[in-house]
Structure formats: structure tokens, C-alpha cells
Design a protein around this nucleic acid. Structure first.
Lengths: 62, 62
DNA sequence: TTGAAATGTTAGATATATATGACATTTTTA
DNA sequence: TAAAAATGTCATATATATCTAACATTTCAA
């Protein structure tokens, strides 16, 4: 249960736009948002930067 | 440049002990500590918990 | 100052993250 | 409400994280 979708919405981005910004396929964003798999640290960091936040806010529970 | 080695030392653990705690091979810990690759988010979270810290402290720069 | 423990590193095998392409469904907008 | 845009999902392919095993080097205690 990460918060990528939530932060993406706040940033006003579509999955496609976010995918382009972090240089992955749109499907990859979709799968990450729906907890269908386990992204690499590198991708997590790129996502956090693209969404103007940090690792804890996106991926750390409690 | 993550801080896994630093936190592991503070916790008084060897690479082998930490590896066992987070259920990976010792070599995986070694490679992560030396930035030889890109761990999965899941492993990062297990490492943060095992070292009593969080994602930002271990892997977020600045 | 030797021997044991810890760490670094390599090679080959396997599991899985990620890509591409395609299509179905849902949501949004004209 | 129809068309367009966004999202969900599947299949196949590829890159790479992670495993095991082995050995070399460094660190540390007796």
C-alpha cells in the first residue's frame, strides 16, 4: 500500500506523464500503484523526486 | 552511497547476521553496502526495519 | 604474529522487475 | 451520451536482482 497514486494525483499527472518523467513504461507505474510488484530502489527514488516528496512519504508505513 | 554499512555497524551486526535477519544472501548485503546494485523496495524496507531506522535515513540523500 | 572471522569478489544459475504491444474497461469531457 | 482519454490487464521478451558456491583478502583476537 504505497502512496504513489495519491501523490501523482496531487501533482496533476497522468500515469503516462509520470512514466515519461521517471523513464519507465506506463504499465510499470500502473503495477507499482496497484502493488503488483516490488520496484527497485532506483525507481523509488526517481518517483519520489518526480513527485516532490521522499522515500518515507511514498513507501514507508507508519 | 547508502548508509547500510554505517547503521549495521552501529547495530553491532556482521553482514552475515544482517543477511540472515532480512533473509537474503550475505553477498547481497555486501553488494548493497558497496553500491554494486539496486535493491528492491521490499529489501530496503526489511533492511530499515532490521536496523531500527527508516527508508530516508538509509537511502535518501540530502 | 598466527589463525579465525569478517569482508570482498567472481562465476554461473534462477527469479523477477521492467519493456513492448495490444486490447478491455473505466473515467472524463465535449 | 458519445468520443476521447486514462487506466487496468494480459502475453511475451529482456535486463537485472538475487542465489549458491567458492576463493582471496582484510581485520581482529588469542
Amino acid at each position: 500500500m504505497n502512496r504513489v497514486k495519491e501523490f501523482r494525483k496531487v501533482a496533476g499527472l497522468t500515469q503516462y506523464q509520470l512514466a515519461k518523467q521517471v523513464a519507465v513504461a506506463r504499465q510499470t507505474i500502473n503495477l507499482v500503484e496497484n502493488d503488483k510488484y516490488n520496484p527497485s530502489l532506483d525507481l523509488c527514488i526517481r518517483l519520489a523526486k518526480a513527485l516532490n516528496t521522499d522515500l518515507n512519504h511514498l513507501f514507508w508505513e507508519e
